Simulated assay, not measured.
Amino acid sequence: MKKIYFLCTGNSCRSQMAEGYGKILLKGKYEVRSAGIEKHGMNPYAVKAMAEDGVDISKQMSKIIDPDYLKSADLVVTLCGDARDRCPALPPQTKSLHWPLIDPAQAQGTPEQKMVVFRQVRDEIKKLVAGLE
């Protein structure tokens, strides 16, 4: 089975949401994992936004990049410029994509205003992951 790796800076929001959708939308086509350049823990707004769409990512853990999985991945998707710029070198056979998504963790305002941003990013990620089929 092919392997896909979703990467962002802290593996707390965007890459976790992509992993959640990937495990559902790409099931049977890809082994799906996510990681970060750093480990920031799971963002509760990301967990809540995904739960609203019926996807439970509450048991996922924030992880740093596994060099062995990275080397064996068929596709690496970076979800922020920092991950794209700081990602270790990829083998020549590994395809890479970059999705320049805003960081919902930087959203300001009330909890509901923050959720609006998380939902927008979630919906964009869902469309992009579905496009990988």
Score class of each variant (00 low, 15 high):
Phe118Leu: 00
Asp53Ile: 04
Leu75Phe: 06
Gly20Asp: 02
Gln60Thr: 01
Val32Tyr: 02
Ala130Cys: 00
Cys87Pro: 06
Pro67Ile: 03
Lys48Val: 00
Val129Phe: 08
Lys126Cys: 07
Ala105Cys: 10
Lys2Gly: 04
Arg33Asn: 12
Asp56Leu: 12
Asp53Arg: 15
Arg119Lys: 15
Glu19Asp: 13
Cys87Ala: 13
Gly22Pro: 04
Glu52Ile: 08
Tyr45Trp: 07
Lys127Leu: 15
Arg119Tyr: 09
Asp103Lys: 07
Asp68Phe: 08
Glu38Trp: 12
Leu132Asn: 08
Lys114Gln: 12
Gly36Asp: 01
Ile37Gln: 07
Lys126Asn: 02
Glu19Trp: 08
Ala89Asn: 12
Ser12Pro: 06
Ser72Phe: 02
Lys59Asn: 13
Met17Phe: 11
Met42Thr: 12
Pro104Arg: 10
Val116Ile: 09
Ala83Gln: 01
Tyr21Cys: 05
Asp68Tyr: 11
Ala130Met: 00
Pro91Trp: 05
Met61Ala: 14
Gln113Leu: 05
Glu19Thr: 01
Gly109Pro: 02
Pro92Glu: 12
Tyr5Gln: 07
Val121Phe: 02
Gln60Glu: 13
Cys87His: 00
Lys2Val: 05
Arg33Tyr: 15
Ala89Ser: 14
Gln108Lys: 14
Glu112Leu: 04
Gly20Trp: 10
Gly28Pro: 03
Arg86Gly: 01
Thr9Arg: 11
Gly10Pro: 03
Arg86Val: 04
Asp85Gly: 13
Tyr69Phe: 15
Asp66Val: 05
Cys80Asp: 14
Ala83Trp: 07
Glu133Ile: 13
Trp99Ser: 11
Gly36Cys: 05
Thr110Asn: 06
Gln93Lys: 15
Val121Thr: 05
Cys80Leu: 00
Met61Glu: 15
Thr78Trp: 10
Tyr69Trp: 13
Asp74Leu: 00
Leu75Thr: 03
Ser96Thr: 09
Val76Trp: 02
Leu101Gly: 10
Gly131Gln: 02
His40Gly: 00
Arg14Tyr: 13
Met42Ser: 14
Ala73Leu: 06
Arg84Ala: 13
Glu52Phe: 07
Leu25Trp: 01
Ser58Gln: 07
Ser15Leu: 03
Lys95Asn: 01
Cys13Ala: 15
Pro88Tyr: 00
Ile64Phe: 00
Leu132Lys: 09
Met17Ala: 11
Ser72Gly: 04
His98Lys: 14
Met17Lys: 10
Tyr45Lys: 03
Arg119Asp: 11
Ala35Val: 04
Thr9Ser: 10
Ser12Asp: 06
Met115Gln: 11
